[in-house]
Design a binder for these strands. Structure first.
Length: 271
DNA sequence: ATGGTCGGCAACCGA
């Protein structure tokens, strides 16, 4: 059985629900993981998703800031949320596809929204950057991100770090810019390596090639300047490493009317 | 080198 899984930082799910619908109608993922929903759970547009065929939802939202959600065409066997750094911020929700989705062996999906970290890349003077580093350290030690042998799991989300040289438009000019500083890249890579995670996009697009999922709102012409970053990631555990079919970055979505600054990333895999 | 734009929600905070 093949499943398609997408991740997208939507930057307000209520404002951009029509763009989400447009994406779902064209790509038809089985599961969509959203970040920055900026929406309390009781205000989540679940009815609209249901009409689009996504009847099953797992929510961890809050008013105004952050917030993550999973919407699925397949029924969910389980869902759970975890908080990080002792904060109430809604930055994780996990779901399991199993018997109800007619999977012989279950697959767990963790959807993350890592703190952006503010502007100043010094934890001593910028509490937001300190929070980001602590969050990455906590991810590395978290059982969610330490799959056991043969365990089938997937991590997706806006991880707010572009870890490789060609994950940014200019490695040299980005070294002191939050999202590409060495300490963040090391911490994200450490979390990835601790769990033996496979960076799906980089198995299809070689590390020597530029690949972005985010373009700033502040650029006068995002497309021509093309000063992007790869902030949105899909990792799979070793047990799923030989089951990957394709990856797709829906770059078009950055040019849609009133876009998010992030675009969807989709993996297709055999489960 | 600097400032540039969004969204939530009603003055700024977070990105």
């Amino acid at each position: 059985m093949q499943i398609k899984l997408s991740t997208w930082n939507i930057n307000s799910v209520r404002l951009r629900i029509d763009l989400v619908a447009k994406f779902l109608k064209s790509v038809r993922p089985d599961v969509l993981c959203l970040q920055e929903t900026k929406c309390p759970d009781d205000a989540f547009p679940a009815k609209r998703f249901k009409r689009l065929g996504y009847e099953h939802v797992a929510l961890n939202g809050q008013k105004g800031y952050h917030g993550v959600a999973v919407v699925s065409r397949l029924p969910l066997d389980a869902q759970a949320v975890k908080s990080y750094c002792g904060k109430i911020d809604c930055r994780h929700v996990g779901v399991t596809l199993g018997e109800k989705a007619k999977l012989r062996d279950p697959v767990t999906i963790h959807n993350y929204y890592v703190p952006a970290g503010g502007d100043e890349p010094d934890p001593a003077i910028n509490p937001k950057f300190e929070h980001k580093l602590a969050f990455l350290d906590e991810m590395k030690a978290c059982a969610n991100l330490l799959p056991k042998r043969d365990e089938r799991s997937i991590v997706v989300g806006d991880l707010n770090v572009a870890p490789l040289e060609h994950d940014v438009w200019s490695h040299k000019q980005m070294l002191r810019i939050v999202s590409h500083t060495p300490i963040e890249c090391e911490k994200l890579t450490a979390a990835q390596q601790a769990g033996g995670w496979i960076d799906v996009a980089r198995t299809f697009v070689p590390p020597s090639e530029k690949l972005y999922t985010w373009w700033s709102y502040r650029a006068q012409d995002w497309f021509t300047a093309d000063r992007g970053r790869r902030l949105d990631h899909i990792w799979v555990s070793q047990a799923l490493g030989d089951r990957l079919s394709s990856i797709k970055v829906t770059k078009d979505a950055r040019g849609w009317e009133r876009p998010s600054d992030h675009v969807p990333v989709t993996v297709t895999l055999e489960v």
